[in-house]
Design a protein around this nucleic acid. Sequence first.
DNA 1: CGGGTTCTTGACTGTCTTCAATACCAGTGG
DNA 2: CCACTGGTATTGAAGACAGTCAAGAACCCG
Lengths: 214, 214
Amino acid sequence: MLLEKSRQFAAPSKSRCEPASSHALLHSGQTLFWEGDDASKIFRIEAGAIRAVIYGEDGERQLIGFFMGGNEIGMPSHGCYQYTAEAITDVVYSTVPVESWSDRLRSARALDKEVFGALECELDSCRVRSQLLSRQGALTRICAFLSGLCQRLGSDEAFTVPMPQIDIAAYLALTPETVCRAIRKLKDIGMIEIDRHDHIRVKDARALVPMMTH
Amino acid sequence: MLLEKSRQFAAPSKSRCEPASSHALLHSGQTLFWEGDDASKIFRIEAGAIRAVIYGEDGERQLIGFFMGGNEIGMPSHGCYQYTAEAITDVVYSTVPVESWSDRLRSARALDKEVFGALECELDSCRVRSQLLSRQGALTRICAFLSGLCQRLGSDEAFTVPMPQIDIAAYLALTPETVCRAIRKLKDIGMIEIDRHDHIRVKDARALVPMMTH
DNA sequence: CGGGTTCTTGACTGTCTTCAATACCAGTGG
DNA sequence: CCACTGGTATTGAAGACAGTCAAGAACCCG
């Protein structure tokens, strides 16, 4: 919907900037690339401002970053762009030639698997926290956190939360009291069990998902 | 202080894990590496949980991530670790041999300047947002945002904010109303000027810093 | 069995969100 | 040139909710 509307602006911009490696222009409102596209180029912003956006399934618009003169944008994870890049103002940019870049990346990936693995791990970790912190409401954040934890631990059923609540609080930018109250609420609902303090057991991880949208 | 206390745990762990590349053990509470250390190794967590922490000058403890079985941790930016890694539970981990890794990274950096440039840009961008979102209070976030914007734009004096308030709101996980009110407060204090709607001018960027800690 | 940390609970305050209505601005077409 | 329209910004009032302060309980450690 909202996505379709702005997509109209994308087509011209895409065809217009093919020429070469030197400077190209993007008008305010146009889109540089789309989330999910195969990452074939890296862009260097020379002038103007760009916003990085992730559109949720429900039309939710999450703004994860701004890029301006001197910044480089378009680093792929797992082969494709992780967000949509839209021009806020008119933008002048240059592109790093596709072939040379992707070739180097491929060879680098083969050679330096560990390096890139760690890099993606680091980036993913950072993205996850941004995602969590962008949610409003303590209960929402806790549920999203527990749900993510569940995925990472691989258990679809019950599992034990390994970290103390005080760490969860610092991680989610909440107070320990608020974390405690949210957890208690989940316990009252019957979604989790607590025997000893840092032994929280999530009974049904799938039930957490609907609470994340709040 | 708090930092000193846990540092006692660090020494033994550091000397203990030199041996080779295979599995090593870290006890709960010990530290894997320190923020600011020269990044000489990458660690792969086999079992257990680790927290990534940044200690502020004022003793503030910011928890930026959790790493668990299967995760890799220790990717440096600008040559050194960006955070301290502490074991929450007992941890089993392996290290990627130092020399081979750093050599590869160096050569990769030389060859793929664009790739790594973009990567660092991406990572920095993500870290910045996490940092901003971890602050509580709308005014604090706005000030931190404007201050960061000022640095990126290079102007130490006055500058014009390039993005609309609605984007700032989405970026900072606030409502447009709250952003507007915070900006109005700054205007009333006399720190910024507004002529047309999306033409905000910051008069003295240095004055923003003290408001960021609040 | 202490001592220190973490967790829990309650009451209160401050602030952000929500809802709703209005003003402002840019682009469009008459 | 001007009304019109859609998106953005502004302002107010009310309600929800998280932070703070304070106290006590549970837990872990040596």
